[in-house]
């Protein structure tokens, strides 16, 4: 019998896509899906180790006041777990739970603000799992404005990304003001390409060719990067919102095109859930 898949969808402090992300996990077949407020982790009521799949939804952590997800990353790095005095062997920082979750080879998907969070925590791309430091960033769109628009995405078939396995292209909305991907150095970018960590790129409508042209590339991302994964493929961050396209009526042209009942975004969550079942995580 396949194991029970337990998903945690983290919310609080400005996160706002938790409901649809949890819905995606349920539709993908996860048996347990919990929307957990950050405060429940911080007071020790809930622990990351009890789950297989961590979802970091979109939103505006702390209003993105210090730059997208900066204050949110600072909290995860430095906040201590309260109310666990007397517990043996307890981690004291939330970040320690994160680290263990990653070391256990479990899955993390960060979308939009969740992607920004992973990047600013240094969890993505984190070539060297032991040494996490921020090596890339996501910053203000070249347009200088927040935009909600649907984009085509090219999938790298050779990517180790667990979530995009078997997919050829995607069509999803972006909804962000700070989605421009910038690598810290040419070496970082080269290595991302070499290891096929760039699972998603903004592309032309046929999803065959990555593009730097606005608005197909909505933010001016270097090399049209829309999503990157860890070398293991288990940690993945993307700016477009897969949880916003779970049903055909989410598609901007559903009243004029013949579309499958299920939206394209669900495939990523199905891949995650079936990976967990296969790997017995």
């Amino acid at each position: 019998m396949a194991p029970t898949v337990k998903c945690i969808v983290l919310t609080g402090n400005g996160t706002n896509c938790e409901m649809e992300m949890a819905h995606a996990c349920r539709l993908a077949g996860a048996e347990v899906v919990e929307i957990v407020h950050l405060s429940e982790l911080l007071c020790g009521e809930k622990r990351l180790e009890d789950y297989h799949f961590l979802n970091l939804p979109g939103g505006f952590l702390d209003g993105d006041d210090l730059g997208s997800a900066k204050a949110g990353a600072n909290r995860i790095l430095h906040a201590k777990i309260r109310g666990r005095a007397g517990a043996t062997n307890a981690e004291t920082r939330l970040y320690d739970q994160f680290s263990r979750f990653i070391e256990d080879g479990k899955l993390i998907l960060g979308v939009c603000n969740g992607f920004q969070l992973l990047v600013k925590l240094g969890v993505l791309p984190a070539f060297d799992a032991a040494e996490r430091a921020q090596t890339v960033t996501l910053t203000y769109n070249d347009s200088g404005r927040f935009e909600d628009r649907w984009v085509h995405l090219k999938v790298d078939p050779a990517s180790p990304c667990v979530y995009t396995e078997g997919l050829t292209g995607l069509y999803l909305p972006v909804r962000h003001g700070e989605g421009k991907f910038i690598p810290g150095s040419a070496e970082v970018l080269a290595r991302l390409h070499r290891e096929h960590c760039i699972a998603l790129q903004y592309s032309t409508a046929d999803t065959a060719t990555a593009t730097l042209d606005y608005p197909a590339n909505p933010n001016g991302s270097v090399d049209a990067v829309a999503g990157i994964c860890s070398a293991s493929g288990r940690i993945f961050g993307m700016m477009p919102h897969p949880e916003a396209y779970l049903h055909r009526t989410n598609h901007p042209r559903w009243t004029r095109e013949d579309l499958p009942e299920t939206g394209m975004g669900l495939a990523l969550f199905r891949n995650a859930v079936s990976f967990i079942k296969r790997q017995r995580l």
């Binding site: 896509c17 649809e20 979109g58 404005r145 935009e147 909600d148 628009r149 949880e243 916003a244 989410n250």
Partner: peptide, 12 residues
């Protein structure tokens, strides 16, 4: 376009 009209996932 500068307003998020799709958050909460129920845009029709």
């Amino acid at each position: 376009r500068q307003y998020d009209h799709e958050v909460q996932g129920g845009s029709v």
